[in-house]
Design a binder for these strands. Structure first.
Length: 646
DNA sequence: ATTAGGG
DNA sequence: CCCTAAT
């Protein structure tokens, strides 16, 4: 029997939902969907292998599963009694809460509950006064400052920069929303005389600017080709026992199932396999396109994907360092999926230049031959946006050399005179740096996954390693999964306009799908990162928006006061103005904060969170989980007492 | 719609 | 940040 909530507060309509419920840990957890997998019995040797591989993977992935002490017990009893308990839970703490309520009535508390009687207000507040226990000091000035929460980079409309410009500021200037039409202006540094000292090793190539640069490129590429060949050979080996098509699909399915240890609805996948070649479901789930997950350092484990029907397309990797030309008209066609060309000119006191396009770093795409051109487009789109969403940086190249010191002025970097402007280039790089050598050349490249041997086996064991692989799939067979791959790239006609047809022409010849050759700058510009219509179709992943320290502070404070089970309140209270932060985000952030706080500082990454905050996180976490524990005890006790009799 | 938890 | 189950 469920007691009506309202009974406890008379008829004033107080909502007890604001009181933390029994933690989920006491609720029975459904053991995922493993059964599905188990029922999947292999029917032949190949399948057996695939299945075995899948199993192994699953095991390795789920080996760390822990069991909650409270799991699987009295859920059913609780259902009927939890609510009844709220009244009791709360009362013992009234005295404490008196302090709390009077000390710092939260906005939400007050505004939403003002009309309530005192009792209700008190009961609505969190039970223990963790605030006091934590020695809280009210924070001034943190919280709902909208400026703090609005992503500056993303909101920046124009890309005009004025004032003192350093190399770093150039890079920061770019918003990738419209990367193809960036117009940047920089004041030319004062030292135009040329007596500016150039940091050693920073710029430096001879005057044959592009010459030196190209040589470098070729070198890199050659190296890359060699690597490639290695993989290619092994691909031949694979061919000998390459499974049949049907099996290929099966393997695909398997990989989907094991990615998160969660079963993708089989029927659905199968349907998609037959129609859209799994592309739809795969990319809807974003399983193939994502090489890693920045939140969990996940690595794509798909060792057994040997889909012979798959067409692998990848642009050359890494850094685009398109030669800069002074003629904006010159548009170079590239082998890569995206090309970059840049026009540049200088006038008066400023350095003005426009970037026609930027080449996007490594991109791995796989679609079956049966995929439509449309789906390929969508796939590429998905890949690109995922890449951008995962964070990308701008690199600055002068005479083909990367400028690392962000604090140098342009003139110090060698960009003070007109002649030198022609040597300026930009690159897009994965935010998490991985690629060491710039890969850029006029020649088609198939970039190889770096050291596929160390990767992907133990993603959790070596997160630092894995997470650095930004976007490519870290398997050799991703590269070689079709010898086609090479050929495609090699034969890439730079400018293949006939690919532009939107029609759904299932081409039997994979070469007809030749990797995009030229998504022209316009095409790239047309890629509507903000447009919803297409976005809905693609089920875009939200852009990653790291929490600022200010936000963290606000979050910490809110949790300290409200506890860890009231994310909606936390949101309302401290992030009401941050529309991009959902309560789930806050909860997730708290989760990571707790994790961050409990690991050594050396292992932390990203914007460092002040230790003081992390300490508070830990303290609050302890306090509230302890509180939760007590609650559990009560609930269980109550369940035992009331449950059997009912 | 919220919350909890796993990926 | 995503997804799902359970409320």
């Amino acid at each position: 029997m469920v007691v009506k909530r309202r009974l406890y507060c008379g008829s004033n309509g107080f909502d007890f939902s604001s009181i933390p419920r029994a933690p989920r840990s006491t609720r029975r957890k459904v053991s995922s969907t493993k059964n599905d997998d188990d029922s999947d019995i292999p029917i032949n040797a190949i399948d057996l292998l695939a299945s075995l591989a899948g199993k192994l993977l699953e095991e390795s992935e789920s080996s760390s599963t822990s069991t909650n002490a409270f799991e699987g017990d009295t859920q059913h009893h609780l259902v009927g009694n939890i609510k009844q308990e709220h009244a009791e839970d709360v009362k013992p703490c009234k005295s404490d809460l008196g302090n709390l309520a009077s000390k710092s009535p939260t906005p939400s508390d007050v505004t939403s509950e003002t009309s309530l009687e005192n009792d209700c207000i008190l009961e609505q507040a969190p039970v223990p006064d963790c605030k006091r226990a934590l020695g809280l000091k009210p924070l001034v000035g943190c919280g709902n400052k909208k400026e703090d929460f609005d992503g500056i980079t993303e909101e920046t409309g124009g890309n005009i920069v004025k004032g003192e410009a350093t190399v770093g500021s150039i890079a920061d200037t770019f918003s990738l929303k419209d990367s193809s039409q960036l117009h940047v202006q920089f004041p030319e540094s004062l030292h135009l005389d040329g007596d500016v000292k150039t940091p050693p090793g920073m710029i430096g190539v001879s005057n044959g600017s592009l010459e030196g640069y190209r040589n470098l490129s070729k070198l890199v590429c050659r190296d890359d080709d060699e690597n490639y060949c290695k993989y290619y050979r092994s691909s031949e080996k694979c061919k000998s026992y390459r499974p049949l098509t049907r099996v290929g699909h099966r393997i695909m399915k398997k990989s989907m199932v094991t990615k998160y240890g969660r079963a993708v609805p089989r029927s659905k996948c199968f349907e998609d396999t037959r129609t859209d070649g799994c592309v739809k479901s795969l990319y809807r789930k974003r399983k193939l396109c994502r090489g890693y997950s920045p939140w969990k350092h996940e690595t794509v484990h798909r060792k057994r994907r040997l889909s012979d029907k798959g067409l692998v397309v990848n642009s050359d990797g890494g850094l685009s360092c398109e030669s800069v030309t002074n003629s904006p008209e010159r548009r170079e066609s590239e082998n890569g999926v995206f090309s970059s060309a840049m026009g540049l000119h200088s006038t008066d006191s400023r350095v003005k230049f426009s970037i026609k396009s930027l080449r996007i770093p490594e991109l791995f795409i796989e679609v079956p031959e049966t995929a439509t051109v449309g789906s390929l487009k969508r796939t590429v789109m998905e890949a690109v946006t995922a890449l951008l969403g995962d964070g990308i940086r701008i690199g600055v190249l002068v005479q083909g050399k990367k400028v690392r010191d962000d604090n140098n002025t342009l003139s110090q970097t060698g960009l003070s005179s007109r002649e030198n402007l022609g040597n300026l280039g930009f690159t897009l790089e994965p935010a998490l740096e991985k690629l060491h050598a710039p890969l850029c050349s006029e020649d088609p490249i198939v970039s190889t996954p770096t050291d596929s041997t160390n990767l992907s086996e133990r993603s959790s064991a070596s997160p630092a390693l894995d997470s650095r692989i930004p976007f490519h799939l870290q398997e050799a067979d991703h590269v070689i999964s079709s010898g086609i791959c090479v050929e495609n790239n090699q034969e890439l006609v730079p400018y293949q306009s006939d690919v532009s047809a939107d029609e759904q022409q299932p081409s039997s010849d994979s070469r007809a799908l030749v990797p995009v050759s030229a998504l022209e700058p316009e095409a790239l510009a047309a890629v509507p990162l903000n447009e919803k219509p297409k976005r809905a179709e693609l089920s875009q992943r939200r852009a990653r928006r790291p929490f600022s320290v200010t936000e963290v502070e606000a979050l910490v404070q809110a949790v300290e006061e409200l506890g860890t089970g009231r994310w909606r309140d936390v949101k309302l209270r401290s992030f009401d103005n941050a529309s991009h932060r959902t309560y789930v985000d806050l909860k997730d952030k708290w989760k990571t904060l707790v994790h961050t706080a409990s690991i050594s500082p050396q292992q932390r990454r990203g914007e460092p969170v002040p230790q003081e905050l992390l300490d508070r996180v830990l303290a609050a976490h302890r306090c509230w989980s302890q509180h939760q524990l007590k609650q559990n005890g009560k609930h269980q006790a109550a369940a035992i007492m009331v449950g059997p009799s009912m």
